[in-house]
Lab assay of single mutants.
Amino acid sequence: EPLWIRPDAPSRCTWQLGRPASESPHHHTAPAKSPKILPDILKKIGDTPMVRINKIGKKFGLKCELLAKCEFFNAGGSVKDRISLRMIEDAERDGTLKPGDTIIEPTSGNTGIGLALAAAVRGYRCIIVMPEKMSSEKVDVLRALGAEIVRTPTNARFDSPESHVGVAWRLKNEIPNSHILDQYRNASNPLAHYDTTADEILQQCDGKLDMLVASVGTGGTITGIARKLKEKCPGCRIIGVDPEGSILAEPEELNQTEQTTYEVEGIGYDFIPTVLDRTVVDKWFKSNDEEAFTFARMLIAQEGLLCGGSAGSTVAVAVKAAQELQEGQRCVVILPDSVRNYMTKFLSDRWMLQKGFLKEEDLTEKKPWWWHLRVQELGLSAPLTVLPTITCGHTIEILREKGFDQAPVVDEAGVILGMVTLGNMLSSLLAGKVQPSDQVGKVIYKQFKQIRLTDTLGRLSHILEMDHFALVVHEQIQYHSTGKSSQRQMVFGVVTAIDLLNFVAAQERDQK
Rank of each mutant, 00 (worst) to 15 (best):
I238A: 01
I239D: 03
I239G: 05
I239K: 04
I239F: 07
G240F: 03
V241P: 03
V241H: 00
V241I: 07
D242H: 01
D242V: 00
P243E: 07
P243H: 07
E244F: 05
G245L: 02
G245F: 02
G245W: 07
S246F: 01
I247F: 07
L248F: 04
E250S: 12
P251A: 08
E252L: 15
E252P: 10
E253M: 02
L254W: 10
L254N: 12
L254Q: 06
N255S: 07
N255R: 06
T257W: 14
E258L: 11
Q259A: 01
T260V: 12
T260R: 02
T260I: 11
Y262Q: 05
E263Q: 13
E263I: 05
E263F: 08
V264E: 05
I267N: 00
Y269V: 01
Y269E: 05
Y269S: 01
Y269W: 00
D270S: 05
D270G: 04
D270H: 06
F271N: 00
F271K: 00
I272V: 12
I272N: 04
P273V: 06
V275W: 00
V275F: 07
L276G: 02
L276E: 01
D277E: 08
T279L: 15
T279D: 02
T279M: 14
V281M: 11
D282Y: 12
K283H: 03
K283M: 11
K283A: 13
W284A: 00
W284C: 00
F285H: 10
S287A: 13
S287T: 12
A292N: 01
F293W: 03
F293V: 04
T294A: 12
F295M: 14
F295G: 08
A296S: 09
A296Q: 03
R297A: 01
M298H: 09
M298G: 09
L299P: 04
A301Q: 08
A301T: 09
Q302D: 15
E303M: 07
G304M: 00
G304K: 02
L305W: 00
L306C: 04
L306W: 01
C307G: 08
G309H: 01
G309Y: 00
A311P: 05
G312L: 03
V315P: 07
A316W: 11
A318M: 01
V319F: 13
V319L: 14
K320Q: 14
K320I: 12
Q323G: 11
E324A: 10
E324K: 15
L325E: 04
L325V: 10
L325K: 02
Q326C: 11
Q326H: 12
E327F: 08
G328K: 08
G328Y: 06
Q329E: 11
R330E: 09
C331D: 00
V332Q: 03
V333C: 13
V333E: 07
I334T: 09
L335N: 01
L335Q: 01
P336N: 04
P336H: 05
P336G: 08
D337F: 03
V339Q: 06
N341G: 03
N341H: 02
Y342K: 01
Y342Q: 01
M343W: 00
T344C: 07
K345H: 03
K345G: 03
L347N: 00
L347G: 00
L347P: 03
R350I: 07
R350P: 04
W351R: 04
M352N: 02
L353D: 03
L353Y: 14
L353G: 09
K355W: 10
K355H: 14
G356W: 05
F357M: 00
F357Y: 11
F357N: 03
L358G: 07
L358D: 10
K359T: 13
E361L: 09
E361I: 09
D362Q: 10
D362E: 13
D362S: 04
T364R: 12
T364W: 13
K366V: 14
K366C: 14
P368V: 10
W370Q: 06
W370P: 05
W370V: 10
W371F: 12
H372G: 14
L373W: 09
R374N: 14
E377F: 09
L380A: 12
L380E: 08
S381M: 13
S381Y: 12
L384K: 10
L384C: 09
L384S: 13
T385N: 12
V386A: 12
P388T: 07
P388S: 14
T389W: 06
T389N: 15
I390Y: 10
I390T: 11
I390P: 03
T391H: 15
T391I: 09
C392H: 05
C392F: 15
G393F: 15
H394G: 03
H394N: 14
H394C: 04
T395S: 14
T395H: 09
T395L: 10
T395K: 11
E397K: 14
E397I: 04
I398C: 08
I398E: 15
K402H: 13
K402R: 15
G403M: 08
F404S: 07
F404C: 06
Q406T: 12
A407F: 13
P408M: 00
V409T: 13
V409R: 00
E412M: 07
A413W: 08
A413E: 13
A413T: 15
I416P: 08
L417T: 12
G418W: 05
V420P: 00
G423E: 15
N424T: 04
N424M: 13
M425L: 15
M425Y: 09
M425I: 13
M425D: 08
L426E: 09
S427A: 10
L429Q: 08
L430H: 09
L430M: 08
A431L: 10
G432F: 09
K433V: 12
S437W: 09
Q439H: 14
V440W: 03
V440G: 09
V440H: 05
G441S: 10
K442P: 15
V443T: 15
I444R: 15
Y445D: 09
Y445C: 08
Q447G: 05
Q447V: 09
F448L: 14
K449N: 12
K449W: 15
I451Q: 06
I451W: 04
R452I: 06
L453H: 01
T454D: 04
T456L: 13
T456Q: 03
G458Q: 07
L460G: 07
S461N: 13
S461T: 11
H462Q: 15
H462E: 13
D467G: 13
D467I: 02
H468T: 09
H468S: 14
V473H: 08
E475K: 13
E475S: 03
I477F: 14
I477T: 12
S481Q: 13
T482M: 13
G483C: 14
K484M: 13
K484F: 13
K484E: 14
S485R: 11
S486W: 08
S486N: 13
S486A: 05
Q487K: 15
Q487F: 14
R488Q: 15
Q489Y: 14
Q489R: 02
Q489P: 12
M490A: 15
M490Q: 15
V491Q: 09
F492S: 15
F492P: 11
F492I: 14
G493Q: 08
V494T: 06
T496M: 07
I498G: 13
I498K: 10
D499W: 01
D499G: 01
L500D: 00
L500G: 06
L501V: 12
N502S: 15
N502H: 15
N502Q: 15
F503R: 11
A505L: 02
A506I: 09
A506V: 08
Q507L: 12
E508Y: 12
E508P: 11
R509P: 12
D510V: 15
Q511S: 10
Q511P: 04
Q511A: 10
K512S: 14
